[in-house]
């Protein structure tokens, strides 16, 4: 399992019903491409986040498939509609089978 993986999210704590809000996410991750070699000339095996999803109250906002060409510490910015109060769930899927999750609650102002 990759070490020191830490998700961070910028999402508003509240919104008006039906409002579109901007979400930003970062996750600290090496995103080892599988194309680099170590000092002995051996290929360092690929180990990346291969999928990222964001759902709100069980409904999908965005579902992203990632290749090794996504930079270290993958960053995403996107927009979401907030129909009512609830939980925004962020999920990152690692090649090694690890799943990292983060949840942010949004209130209706």
């Amino acid at each position: 399992m990759a070490e020191g993986v830490k998700p961070r999210v910028k999402a508003p704590k509240s919104a008006s019903a039906g409002e579109t809000v901007v979400i930003k996410t970062l996750i600290s991750h090496q995103m080892e491409s599988g194309q680099r070699k170590d000092s002995d000339g051996n290929v360092i095996p690929r180990s990346i986040i291969n999928r990222f999803t964001c759902d709100y109250n069980g409904q999908n906002i965005i579902d992203v498939t990632l290749a090794p060409a996504i930079s270290t510490n993958p960053y995403f910015e996107f927009e979401a509609v907030i129909p009512d109060a609830g939980d925004m769930k962020f999920t990152w899927y690692d090649d090694d089978g690890s799943v990292y999750e983060e949840t942010k609650s949004v209130a209706i102002a």
Partner: peptide
Amino acid sequence: NPTPDVCTFNFGPLAGAQRASTRIRL
């Protein structure tokens, strides 16, 4: 790039726009 794949964004019913940003290796 040696392999061209970067990412695919699939937008769900609660997407506020079909717009997304990320950072890539070239």
